[in-house]
Computed example of a mutant assay.
Amino acid sequence: MTYQEVIEELYDLEDQEKVIFKARKFGIISKNSLGVYHKDLKELAKNIGKNSELGIQLFDSGIYEARILCSKIFHPKDLNENLMEKWVRTFENWEICDSFCMGVFAKSNLALTKILEWSTREEEFQKRAAFAIMAAYCMADKTSDNLLFQQFFPMIIDASNDDRFYVKKAVNWALRNIGKRNIDLRQDAIKVANKMIQLEHKSAIWIAKNALKELQKESVRSSDYPRNIYRTP
């Protein structure tokens, strides 16, 4: 599909009532939104296939859903730091932040660099991006050993005093996903959570208790990565 064909398709799907509904129900406030749901964008992305050049054009259109679509068709191997910096500075809500972090950033060779760099950013959705990448990277990287993920714990502890809703939710998400990587990291994450409770900071306590509630369940699912160690025949 050409750029113009995709734009026309997006306008055909426009529904401004959905813009209002998403804002009210999910807190998704966005500029220049057409009100196209993810399931429709996912289907459109499937029809397009991976196309990084088209993805850049769609992002530069300024249409909110075109930018979400970019996150679905852009190939992570084509990512560079200039693009990441340009895009992260435009993130205006959790939906577009997470779409890029999960769909593109966490799958790129720059994931670890940006986790480290963005984890101390002041802007809410730029800081959230660091921990959204971290959470997604736990599933994207299937081979690294535990030491890599243990190095995320100090960043999680440092960010646990951030009371902003969309930051603390992402910090919590990252802690839970590290813990769900394998049985040893689960025990490590539980120890970190208990340490955070002792900080006696409201957001740190919320992050920790929410993580413990999931990680201490007998039924918690484990990815068993790396599987050559944690899932033997």
Rank of each mutant, 00 (worst) to 15 (best):
Q126G: 01
I207Q: 02
T232E: 01
L44M: 14
S30V: 00
L83D: 12
P233Y: 02
E14T: 06
D188F: 15
S203A: 13
S160L: 09
I115D: 02
D12Y: 15
D188P: 04
E123T: 04
N228A: 00
N51L: 05
E95F: 09
C70V: 04
E5T: 01
I68M: 12
L10F: 05
F26C: 02
Y3Q: 00
A170R: 06
W173P: 04
W87G: 11
Y37N: 09
D40F: 12
K39C: 07
V88T: 15
S119T: 00
D224C: 15
L79D: 00
I48K: 13
L13H: 04
Y230Q: 00
A132S: 14
L34I: 12
S33F: 05
R164I: 05
I28G: 03
N177C: 10
K77R: 11
S203K: 05
D188K: 14
K202W: 01
D141Y: 02
A111R: 05
Y64H: 15
K72D: 12
S61V: 11
N51F: 12
I29D: 03
H75S: 15
N93Y: 10
G62P: 13
R231L: 15
L54Q: 09
N194R: 11
K114W: 13
E122V: 11
W94L: 13
G62A: 12
I156K: 07
S99E: 15
S33Q: 13
I7D: 00
F105C: 06
D224K: 13
A208R: 07
E124P: 04
I207S: 04
A135P: 04
C70Y: 08
L175G: 05
S71Q: 13
K142R: 13
I28T: 02
P154H: 14
N194Y: 03
L10G: 06
R67W: 10
M196D: 01
A45V: 06
D12N: 06
K191T: 10
I156Q: 11
Y137G: 03
R231D: 05
C97M: 02
R67V: 02
K202I: 14
H201A: 03
G179H: 09
Y3G: 00
F152D: 01
K72H: 14
A211V: 03
E123M: 10
R121N: 11
K127W: 01
I20T: 01
F165T: 08
L112P: 10
K42F: 08
K217A: 13
Q216Y: 02
Y137W: 11
A140D: 11
I197A: 03
A170D: 01
E95T: 07
I29V: 11
I197V: 10
Q216R: 12
I28L: 07
N210K: 12
L212N: 08
Y230C: 04
I48N: 14
K39E: 07
A23P: 00
D15M: 05
F91E: 12
D188G: 00
G62I: 07
W118N: 08
